[in-house]
Design a binder for these strands. Structure first.
Length: 480
RNA sequence: GGCCCGUUCGUCUAGUGGCCUAGGAUGCAGCCCUCUCAAGGCUGAGAUCAGCGGUUCGAAUCCGCUACGGGCUACCA
């Protein structure tokens, strides 16, 4: 049987990093088996729809490098792939269960439900529906349903045990009496999630159900629905949650959680995929740098962890650095394009990028690191003065200006020799000398290699910066 | 409250009864390289494997209990 798996996000906001991890695992599994991936939009809660969320899902997934075969915009044999466009199927399904006596109409108001819940909670009892409408004669209920607002609830058995052999968590069982007569069709005619997934997964021929750990507790509800329909339950696996540093489910307050945010913050999709895959899965070897293709080849469901994994930004940053370094200079320049001002000269940029290639953890850093090549700098005098010796620092600047001006060829070799000569002459180590000059040239204490930077900046600008730094130091003390 | 799940260095993890005086990575510290910062190389600190009790010649690995953490408990997904 060919593998058919699905990812089923809700369009309730932009793509969350946790659901991306689940999606990735689905993807690895399906692609390895040359299976089919299905994107299904689960929008059965009309109140929580967010404008543009489907676009965000598409953009985010594509950016990550995930592809799929059937979906809302791709079509496929089971179209439509948006649940709100599949309403008749759910309504038919619910009616089928009512007809079978496996479900019933419930006319209880939300107020009544809230009241019994409050009452049960106060009495420290299990809060669940009291089955008030379960015994209305079917004919009477059907008649009332024509005019009265109602939902459809599943008739849950009184007792027994129901369980699943989860591919990750193993055997998990629930006492049936802890499960209430759940609503499967809402009063607005929309299905609840539980009915919709079961029907869709069945109709779309889903061969493995992979989803986040959050869903484990509602699995018995789904099992009961499968049972009511008389359908076979496909293999199910739940993947552990991605947690915030505090151990709770990753959420906004923990920082960035949206794919688009990471993209904007200068992360590479390769790094995201690599890092995310390794939360909850490990190959059992000591390798840890994996491309998407590597993961498709190596990921195995029996190596998936049960425990949730905490988000570790430092580790992500490290992966990002690794993947940036794996890029060719040409590729890096391409990736940098959205992060660098339009006004910057691209020829200069191309020459500068090699200097910072292995100094970046995120793409956004390039702008700061290279700014001095494109814009004037205004160094902090405290940065220019080294060894607490203002006079000598000024002399360094003066000598550097003169030496660079006299250079026959303005290149790294000549610049290096000139600066080292100044150090020797003034009796300073090279380090403080370069620090003075670096501050004057770049306005900073750290940055790309100095000699190369000076060469790139060019003679004219370099001399000007050396001169203005002298002015800065010369006037400083009298005014201070 | 009820149901369910989880628990190995700060973090991601390796480990499926003896190879574990618990390995790797990240982060941290130090050293080397070096014009700064990175990158790279080396070294180090860091986990009595949540605790307790069992099973066994032998347990991080099997069983039980406890603790702690988390998820779910809606006409949300």
């Amino acid at each position: 049987m060919t593998v058919r798996v699905r990812f089923a996000p809700s369009p309730t906001g932009s793509l969350h990093i946790g659901s991306v991890r689940t999606t990735l695992y689905n993807y690895f599994f399906a692609r390895r088996d040359r299976g089919t991936l299905i994107l299904r939009i689960e929008d059965t809660d009309q109140d929580r729809l967010v404008e543009g969320a489907v676009d965000s899902i598409y953009d985010g997934l594509r950016w990550m490098g995930v592809s799929w075969d059937e979906g809302p915009r791709e079509g496929g044999p089971h179209a439509p792939y948006i649940q709100s466009e599949r309403l008749p199927r759910y309504q038919r399904g619910a009616q089928e269960l009512v007809d079978k006596g496996a479900a019933y109409f419930c006319f209880c108001s939300k107020e009544r439900l809230a009241a019994i819940r409050a009452q049960q909670a106060a009495a420290k009892q299990i809060t669940r529906y009291d089955r008030h409408c379960r015994n209305i004669p079917p004919a009477e209920a059907a008649e009332r349903a024509k005019n009265e607002s109602h939902v459809v609830r599943l008739k849950v058995p009184d007792s027994g045990t129901i369980g699943v052999d989860d591919l990750v968590f193993g055997r998990v069982e629930w006492p049936i009496e802890t499960i209430e007569d759940q609503v499967i069709l809402k009063s607005d005619g929309f299905p609840t999630y539980h009915l919709a997934v079961v029907i869709d997964d069945h109709e779309m021929g889903i061969t493995q159900i992979f989803r986040g750990e959050d869903w484990l507790p509602s699995t018995p509800k789904h099992l009961l629905i499968y049972q009511a329909f008389g359908w076979a339950v496909p293999p199910i696996a739940h993947f552990p949650n991605v947690l915030g540093p505090d151990g709770k489910k990753l959420a906004k307050r923990h920082g960035a959680t949206k794919v688009e945010q990471f993209r904007a913050d200068g992360y590479l999709p390769e790094a995201m995929v690599n890092y995310l895959a390794l939360i909850g899965w490990a190959p059992g070897t000591e390798e840890e740098i994996f491309s998407m293709d590597d993961l498709v080849a190596k990921w195995r469901i029996d190596q998936v962890q049960k425990a949730g994994g905490k988000w570790d930004k430092d580790r992500l940053d490290w992966f990002n650095g690794v993947w940036i370094r794996k890029l060719s200079v040409a590729q890096l320049i391409e990736r940098l394009e959205p992060f660098v001002p339009k006004a910057w000269d691209r020829a200069m940029l191309a020459k500068a990028v090699p200097l910072i290639h292995e100094r970046m953890r995120t793409l956004v850093e390039a702008r700061d690191q290279l700014d001095f090549l494109f814009n004037d700098v205004s160094p902090d005098p405290a940065l220019v003065v080294q060894e607490n010796d203002r006079a000598k620092s000024i002399r360094v600047l003066a000598r550097a200006e003169a030496a660079l001006r006299a250079l026959p060829t303005f290149d790294t070799t000549g610049i290096k020799a000139a600066i080292e000569a100044i150090a020797a002459e003034l009796g300073w180590k090279v380090r403080p000398v370069t620090l003075v000059i670096r501050a004057a040239i770049t306005g900073r204490r750290v940055g790309p290699p100095l000699y190369e930077s000076i060469e790139l900046l060019g003679k004219e600008k370099s001399l000007a910066r050396l001169a203005s730094a002298q002015d800065l130091l010369g006037e400083g003390p009298r005014n201070a």
